[in-house]
Structures are given as C-alpha cells and as structure tokens.
Measured scan of single mutants.
Amino acid sequence: MFYPNSPQTSPQLTQIPYGQQYAMMQRQIQQPYHPFATTEPQARLYPYHYQGPIQQEQGGFITQQSTAASPQYVQMRVTPVDQSIMSGYPNQTANGSSSSSFNYNIHPQQQQQQQQQQQQLRHHAMPVGSVPLQDDRYRKQLIVNYLAPDVTSTDLHELFSRFGELDGARIIYDKQTNMSKGYGFVYFCHAEDAKEAVERMSGYEFHGKWLKVGYSTNPLNIVPSNSSPYVHAGSRGAAG
C-alpha cells in the first residue's frame, strides 16, 4: 500500500523548493479562506456584503464582478436614472436638479381664491374633541361614552347635575331594538360647569363602566337656548 506522503511516492527534499517541504498533501497545500485577509477597505468593513468592485458596462447597466450573493443577503441591482424623465418638472436647472418651490404660472386672482378656499376649509374642519370658538353652545354640550346598558337618562342627569344647572341629558337608544347604544349627551347651562365635568368625570366608574367624557361637536345635538329642557323620564321611549 502506498500513501500520498510515503517515501516511495514523495520526491527528495532537495528537489522541493524551500517553504513547501512540509506541504505535501493536497489539504495542506490548499490555503484556508480568510474573509478579512484583503487589501480593499470595503471588504474589511463589510465582509458579507462586499463582492468586489463595481464596473460600468456598455448599455448603462451596473453589474458586479463577483458571483451571486448568499441567500441570506439580498443584493440590489441599481440602474442609472434617465434624465429625460425629470425634464417635465418646473424650475429645473441645466444640471438636472430642481428647486423646492414650484411655479405653475397661476393667475394671481386664482391663487388668492385657492388660498381663501383653504382658509375656509381649515375654519370649518374641526378635529374630534375640539371646541370651536365662534359658538358658545359647543362648550356646553358633552358626550358621555361607555355607558352601561342599564343607565337611563334620569341617572345621567343626576350624575352630572352636581356640577351645575343642566339644560338636559339623554341616552341614545336603538330604534329597532330599543336598547341603549352605550353613549349619551349632557347639556349644561354654563360653559364653566361643562369644563369642570369634563375634567372630573373622564375615567369615572359608573355602573361598572369607566366613562369617557368630552365635548360634543355635532351641531345636530345642540340644544337651542330658547327651547324647553328635555324630559328626564326613566322610560326608554321618552328618553330616546
């Protein structure tokens, strides 16, 4: 039997160049792979992502010199942007860049009308829970959420009447099932009393439920100042 490094198959040491006398086997001759043993700084910083320098080929596509990437890492192929796409944008300079302001050559009167329309939209648009300043009635009506099913309009009136005089209180019921929808409205005579009720009743436990109280901004629920107070009856038909 002959071994790869046996004296019968191995040459004389004098015939082997210096430095390879003890590297006779194939696994010894093959050098191990060192990912950080390279002179390129990109490979030292990113050993798993770097795959060699990027070269520009004919046709405008950018390719990489090395083989496919590892399945664990996804390499994105980048193509140059066609400058003709950006030619339609206004205020574009000769080098292809555009300024931040756009001039669509709008007539001054049209621009003024658009600004007025935007101001009107901001004036009428009102986020949930906010209180408008032009109508004091919005500051007097509250919406009470997360009410228990057994709470009546009379219970709601008695709960909030300790903060001040009320114009009314009612629970909203479903017309088909005649069941409470879980929320109601309270109408105060003074805005200061309503503000105190919002601050003190939010998070209050009532009939096993934690109440959420806020201003009601729905104009359909506003009680006119010259109208008669609501009837605080315990029956659902009268309260709904």
Rank of each mutant, 00 (worst) to 15 (best):
P4S: 12
P4F: 15
N5L: 12
P7C: 09
Q8S: 07
Q8T: 08
S10I: 10
P11G: 06
P11Y: 15
L13Q: 09
L13K: 04
T14H: 03
P17A: 10
Q20D: 04
Q20W: 15
Y22C: 06
A23V: 13
I29F: 15
Q30D: 07
Y33F: 09
P35Q: 08
P35L: 14
A37M: 14
T38S: 06
T39M: 15
P41D: 06
P41C: 14
Q42C: 09
R44K: 04
R44D: 03
L45W: 05
L45V: 14
Y46G: 03
Y48L: 09
Y50N: 05
Q51F: 15
G52D: 08
G52S: 06
Q55N: 10
Q58N: 11
G60W: 15
I62Y: 14
T63V: 13
Q64V: 15
Q65T: 14
T67V: 11
A69Q: 08
S70A: 08
P71F: 14
Y73S: 04
Q75C: 14
M76Y: 13
R77V: 15
R77W: 15
V78F: 15
P80H: 10
P80V: 11
D82K: 03
M86I: 14
G88M: 14
Y89C: 03
P90I: 14
Q92G: 11
N95H: 12
S98P: 08
S100E: 02
S101R: 08
F102P: 06
F102I: 08
F102E: 02
N103W: 15
N103S: 07
Y104E: 06
N105I: 15
N105K: 05
P108T: 11
Q109H: 14
Q110C: 09
Q110M: 12
Q113H: 12
Q114S: 09
Q114H: 07
Q115S: 12
Q116A: 07
Q116H: 05
Q118E: 11
Q118K: 05
Q120L: 13
H124P: 12
A125L: 11
P127M: 13
V128C: 06
G129K: 05
G129N: 04
R137C: 02
Y138H: 04
R139E: 04
R139T: 08
I143V: 00
V144P: 02
N145K: 01
Y146D: 00
L147R: 03
L147M: 07
A148N: 11
D150P: 06
T152A: 10
S153K: 03
T154A: 09
D155Q: 15
D155R: 02
L156E: 05
E158H: 08
E158K: 06
L159R: 02
R162W: 08
F163H: 02
G164E: 02
E165T: 12
E165P: 13
L166T: 04
G168N: 02
G168C: 09
A169T: 10
A169C: 05
I171C: 07
I171W: 02
I172A: 00
K175Q: 10
K175C: 05
N178K: 06
K181E: 00
Y183I: 00
F188Y: 05
H190G: 03
E192A: 03
D193N: 08
K195V: 07
E196Q: 07
E199W: 08
E199D: 05
Y204C: 03
F206C: 02
H207L: 01
G214S: 07
G214I: 00
Y215R: 00
S216F: 00
T217Q: 02
T217H: 04
N218E: 00
N218Y: 00
P219G: 00
N221T: 08
I222G: 02
S225Y: 07
S225I: 04
S227H: 08
P229L: 10
P229V: 12
Y230E: 03
H232Q: 11
G234C: 08
G234N: 06
R236M: 05
R236S: 05
G240C: 14
G240E: 06
